[in-house]
């Protein structure tokens, strides 16, 4: 979805410039569409990653015999608050690390963008 909406949002004027250079569809995609859509693609990936963590835990809560979601479920059922808190803490740390990693990739890949931050 991020790729599709990013490509749909590419500035028509840049495509017009690319047409002047007789680019093939493959070259147009590689040299213009994908770089221009990169901000939307990376935002989509970053959002997707945070959602992926949530859905993973939700799935483990319902049907798993190991993992963070299982720890949460198991801790609740055995009244082990320490396990529940540890699982929540671990989930937060993993989420933060993966988001920071994506933010670093985004910042480096989009250094060309003329934006506020």
């Amino acid at each position: 979805m991020g790729v599709a909406s990013g490509i749909r949002g590419v500035d028509r004027k840049l495509i017009e410039v690319a047409r002047l250079y007789r680019l093939s569809n493959v070259a147009l995609t590689r040299r213009v569409l994908l770089p221009a859509a990169l901000p939307a693609i990376l935002t989509g990936l970053r959002n997707g990653l945070s959602l992926a963590w949530m859905f993973m835990v939700a799935a483990e809560l319902i049907a798993a015999s190991k993992g963070l979601g299982y720890l949460l479920s198991d801790g609740r059922e055995t009244s082990r608050a320490d396990i529940v808190l540890a699982a929540i803490f671990l989930l937060a740390i993993l989420g933060k690390i993966s988001d920071s990693l994506m933010a670093t990739i985004e910042k480096r890949s989009l250094a060309w963008r003329d934006s506020y931050a």
Partner: peptide
């Protein structure tokens, strides 16, 4: 027939590719 290398075109805005 279509665009040609023999014709250069300069637009109203620079239209530079910002990532290059």
């Amino acid at each position: 027939q279509g665009v040609s290398r023999d014709i250069g075109f300069i637009f109203q805005e620079p239209r530079l590719f910002p990532w290059l």
